[in-house]
């Protein structure tokens, strides 16, 4: 098996770094946006509900790659020329990839949070009210803590998918791990080595996320808490 030079290995690590940053940035944006979507969806206004439902349906039914392309190739047309040139000078690939990934994930994250909230019976709310809780207090102490527990497993697998989907950003030239892997493979033809290392790097990432997820689940599990006390 052909070994990589230190420089080539370094390049892969830089790719991994970009992958992780892209993941973190889009996950934070996705989560924040999802919270907004959930709140907007909960309002009484039919127009708000339609908007959110449409948003979610679009992002669930169009491939992520197409969403990324739409942002990178299509959207700049709507921007004023100077903004466009500024963007192209400032890592537009990364920005558009992050936006597309965040929007795509937010639709799913919002649905996960919403179904968690819906799983909490209204009687919990009544019980809190009967003790004198205001709406916000009931949500904060009673409903949200329980809903988050229910939403945790789907949110973890959603984060996992997002991490893996950052690889799609290579299609518009973001120099993340998959992109670098292809590049080095092209230059050196050390196919197995390069792809092997990249695969291991991805596995380290996903397994770390999985471990973190089950640590969180364990920590918030009720019977475990009871035993610890």
């Amino acid at each position: 098996m052909d070994l990589l030079t230190a420089d080539q290995f370094q390049q892969l690590l830089w790719g991994m770094r970009t992958t992780i940053i892209l993941f973190a940035v889009s996950w934070v944006m996705a989560f924040a946006l999802a919270l907004v979507l959930v709140v907007v969806r909960a309002t009484e206004y039919r127009l708000c509900r339609w908007f959110v439902d449409g948003f979610v349906a679009y992002h669930r039914n169009v491939p992520l790659l197409v969403q990324v392309m739409f942002w990178y190739f299509g959207m700049p047309e709507l921007l004023p020329e100077n903004v466009r040139f500024w963007l192209y000078d400032h890592n537009a690939e990364f920005s558009f990839a992050a936006i597309a990934l965040a929007l795509g994930s937010s639709a799913y994250v919002a649905e996960d949070i919403r179904s968690g909230l819906r799983a909490i019976p209204n009687t919990q709310f009544e019980a809190a009210s009967s003790l004198g809780c205001s709406y916000l207090q009931s949500m904060r102490y009673i409903v949200v803590p329980q809903a988050l527990r229910i939403s945790l497993p789907p949110l973890v697998s959603r984060a996992l998918l997002l991490f893996k989907n950052t690889s799609i950003a290579m299609a518009i030239g973001v120099a993340e791990l998959t992109y670098r892997t292809r590049e080095i493979e092209n230059m050196t033809f050390k196919t197995f080595t390069v792809f092997g290392i990249a695969t291991v790097l991805y596995l380290i990432g996903t397994f770390t996320l999985m471990a973190f997820g089950s640590w969180l689940e364990n920590r918030t599990r009720l019977d475990r808490k009871a035993a610890a006390k």
Partner: peptide, 14 residues
Amino acid sequence: RGIPLLMLIFWCYF
């Protein structure tokens, strides 16, 4: 499930 589909596609490709 631990690797991106794109990686898997490249694996098969090569």
